[in-house]
Amino acid sequence: MIVDAHVYLGSCLFGYGQSLDEVRARMERLGIDKAVLVPVKPQDYHLGPANELVAQVVRTHPDRFLGLCRVDPWQTEAAVSEARKGFDEMGACGLYLDPWEENFQANDDIVSPLVEEARHRSKPVVINAGHPRVSHPTQIWDLACQFPDVQFVACNGGQINICGLLLFEARRMMEACANITVQTAGTYREDFLEEIASEVGEERVIFASRSPVYDQEFEMARVRLAHLSESQKDKLWSANALALFH
């Protein structure tokens, strides 16, 4: 079974996007059984309708899709209300925070009330991680320490740096915080993912493509070709994600 733990749905302000038909056709072609849908930031900046679009798809195809609720911490009380609505009315399986596109620091105080909402419901918080200044591994690490009973999922292997300089910090983050899992999408250096799965914990890595930001087929190859055992890969492909998102 293959679960893609991060697939964007909708047309994004920043130029990327995909329709449900495109998502489903590619899942069919690539043999992906299930996807966690993530709302994009739309042209009109309003995340509410983007969350509703994801929720509708999940309601219609509960066997194929799960959905995250995306909120902008700068919306303060309105964001908290949106998160509550996402969990209690729209069936969101987790919260999505994007410090890069919403322009806030991942460990800022404005994030805390939102993480509290996730904590009350035992839902994970997915963060677009690895962006210098807003979601550096040390900032994700700091946030995870503030909420040790919340599960966090860091996109991009927790680090985006083609120099390799963030590999050290991301590894330290993973060793220090048992409540952080990393996604495979776009990760610099496959040996980083292999080492996290083999040396830190095989339950700490999940397959995700962040399609269409990254190429879903290429991101599958990243896992398929990894130097891991088949049982470890089974966990990356689906078991770890299914344990987190429900």
């Binding site: 040996d191 190859a221 070709l225």
Partner: peptide, 17 residues
């Protein structure tokens, strides 16, 4: 590839894609 940290097989696959 920037191997061995980046997997040369994956990097070959990328060019083929």
């Amino acid at each position: 590839s920037d191997g061995p940290g980046c997997d040369p097989s994956l990097e070959v696959h990328k060019v083929k894609m």
